[in-house]
């Protein structure tokens, strides 16, 4: 493994690790969401709870998986391209 390959390995590792950390920080949801539900009590009927959608981005495992997959695939290609060629 040469210097460039080590660098690629580090970059890919960092991207995968970052996407996992972000996923955990967002609450470990399976699917990425752009809306979440909040609950509101009705003033006239206190027993009733109304659910409301609000715009909020939630990072899901699918997004982490996609980013990690692309990073690994790209890293693999560059890892192959930067291999040390044997001198003839």
């Amino acid at each position: 493994m040469n210097k460039k390959q080590k660098l690629i390995l580090n970059i890919v590792g960092s991207i995968v690790l970052s996407s996992v950390i972000i996923w955990i920080a967002y609450g470990r949801e399976i699917f990425t969401k752009t809306q979440v539900l909040i609950e509101k009590k009705d003033d006239l009927f206190p027993d009733m709870v109304q659910k409301q959608w609000i715009d909020k981005f939630v990072w899901g495992l699918d997004l982490s998986g996609a980013i990690s997959g692309i990073a690994i695939l790209t890293g693999f290609i560059f890892f192959f391209l930067f291999r040390t060629k044997k001198q003839q």
Binding site: D42, D43, L44, F45, D47, M48
Partner: peptide
């Protein structure tokens, strides 16, 4: 569960007439 509210100042803010809430 059904709650019947006779028309009053508060219910009028929501809709005219008596209100029936159903859960």
């Amino acid at each position: 569960e059904a709650t019947y509210l006779d028309e009053n100042e508060q219910t009028q803010k929501r809709a005219p007439g008596d209100l029936l809430g159903i859960r």
